[in-house]
Design a protein around this nucleic acid. Structure first.
Lengths: 340, 340
DNA sequence: GTGAAAGCGCTAACAC
DNA sequence: GTGTTAGCGCTTTCAC
């Protein structure tokens, strides 16, 4: 253990200036004379001094820490989002404090409270809901919250999502126009806004084309649930000839059941469509037709919404919706007539 | 914006006790009388008070923040590790501040300096090397460092790795005993200890069984590099009949090239073995024979090594090596004679 | 432009 | 046990 902590006082002494001069030197806005700056820089370098962010935050009220709550990283969409979010925030001088929230509802509230203890400058909730009570508490503490890939019926909450309804609608149209007769849906967790919207759009798209839903099961966004849903749905005589699975992660498991357990051929026996466009969807082993969530755009919007709220506390909350294009691959039959 | 920040003074006033009583109530070790505790609890609850972790850390010198540096989350092994690490640390009252370090070497030093600014209690370097200069700096600052899935020739650094040599050796034996004649290797980034050890073990295993390496290419742990390596290696007359790819993530891309571009059959034309055993390796689309990195064990060792160093600064550094079992699936031929 | 002084919210001696 | 006091390392008035 060498010299432990070096303080601005030590630097000041060595540089022959006051401690506040040292502080000013390290504070972006402040003005220091060329000569002082040089002396401070040299002293700081020889001592290896760097300002203590925590002590600074105590007085400025800004920690430059953003709390990120994420439920699980198993679905490849989230690591990707986390990496991009962290990089984007890092570029703006912020850092991400991660909080894993187990699915259990009660847990998230306690997690949020822990976050607040760290005096974070903002909170990003990735695929996690916020109790209105906690939302109020964050607002009271003056901590901006942005919901990422989830939204709630609360106009005071800022959120960034794909246009799940439009995405679902495209899927409905695609499957109907491809001439499928028995079109099914494997839903995710029904408490999620993403699920409800994707399904609502999907049904709209079907209706628009004169089709209707033939079968429906729930997969809860979980592998085992999705597998079971697929087995229940397809292990019968009059099985569906197309299925929209609410996200890619479940779709992979569904495809595995169809191909390897049930011996079905995709897309000849059944078309499969997912949602997210995670990297694996593009790999030849799945070649999954899906709706792309534009992670870069979502992250950019999330970061800018967050910074806007931090820098200007009066900023109006916004609900951002990002266009989500349908990506055609070979897991689903192509439309027979190009109507649009 | 409601009442902004509530301080312990406000709580003290409402509870009719001194501010230090409030502090004691929230400090695990301290003793408060039952009566005072009740009064403080009530006042704190009605005010919604929670102690400011940052202010506390200023005086205790403990932030309960662990800095985690990770290069990229694309390889599924890392999100898994991150999730488990964060959960385990959270259970111990610590939280993870994430720092993404782009591969560039210079970057990691500046990232490390940023981490130190946050007065973290410890640093976990996941698959990232540490310049000895920086290592010294951490030591000077009294900040324990644990290398996760990487190690360096520095006995003063604590590290947690799989037994990569033994794992590689098993792969060498497997391929040799399965009767392969032209055994190849696609390496990851050669600067990584994991790569060097896996390959060294692999060559040992081959030699042991009287076999030798037939071809070698470098994939740098990167998808496109791995694909090109596979093309160079297999698009010839006398192509290898078995290949050990240095991690699963590259192995998937290699398999795709072999099967879909070159029309080879696995394992009939060529056996493929990976390293990591990420979830996807077990899926039927790959059924990859691989060496398992026991993420849970690695995380448990990492956390306990970290806590030991934090709680007891004199703790000797350790180099932990975790047994890494070979997992047999169908991407590689099984040994012809069971000798062991 | 610069230094002295006050204080961010808290914990840790120290007397009582 | 409890309150009083002195800082943790820093930023920020405020005179000069």
């Amino acid at each position: 253990m060498a010299q432990e902590k070096i303080t601005s006082f030590e630097v000041a002494k060595l540089a022959g200036v006051s401690q506040s001069a040292v502080s000013r030197f390290f504070t972006p806005g402040s003005s220091v004379s060329r000569k002082t700056a040089d002396k401070v820089r040299e002293a700081a370098d020889t001592l290896g001094y760097r300002p203590n962010v925590l002590a600074r935050s105590l007085i400025t009220g800004r920690s430059r820490i953003i709390g990120l709550v994420v439920a699980y990283l198993e679905n490849h969409f989230y690591p990707e989002a986390l990496e991009k979010l962290s990089n984007a925030l890092q570029a703006k001088g912020y850092h991400v404090l991660v909080f894993m929230a187990s699915q259990t509802a009660g847990n998230i509230d306690s997690v949020l409270r822990e976050i607040l203890d760290y005096q974070v400058d903002g909170i990003i909730l990735a695929s996690v809901a916020l109790s209105s009570e906690l939302g109020g508490q964050c607002k009271a503490a003056g901590v901006p919250v942005v919901l990422f890939n989830r939204h709630q019926n609360d106009p005071t909450l800022t959120s960034v999502c794909s246009d799940n309804v439009a995405g679902g609608r495209e899927v409905g149209r695609l499957l109907a126009r491809a001439g499928h007769r028995r079109i099914a849906h494997i839903a995710g967790w029904e408490g999620a806004s993403t699920q409800r919207e994707r399904e609502a759009g999907f049904l709209e798209g079907l209706r628009e084309c004169g089709a209707e839903l033939y079968a429906r099961e729930v997969g809860n966004f979980a592998p085992e649930s999705a597998r079971e849903a697929a087995r229940r749905m397809f292990d019968t005589g009059d099985r569906p000839d197309a299925v929209f699975v609410a996200n890619d992660h479940m779709a992979f498991f569904v495809m595995d059941v169809l191909r390897f357990e049930l011996g079905l051929s995709i897309p000849d026996d059944v078309s499969v469509v997912g949602f997210d466009d995670v990297p694996l969807a593009a790999w030849p082993v799945y070649a999954l037709t899906t709706v792309r969530q534009r992670a870069n755009a979502m992250v950019a919007e999330t970061v800018s919404a967050m910074l806007a709220q931090i820098e200007n506390p009066g900023t109006e909350p916004t609900q951002v919706s990002i266009e989500a294009p349908l990506i055609l691959r070979s897991s689903a039959r192509k439309p027979q007539a190009r109507t649009d």
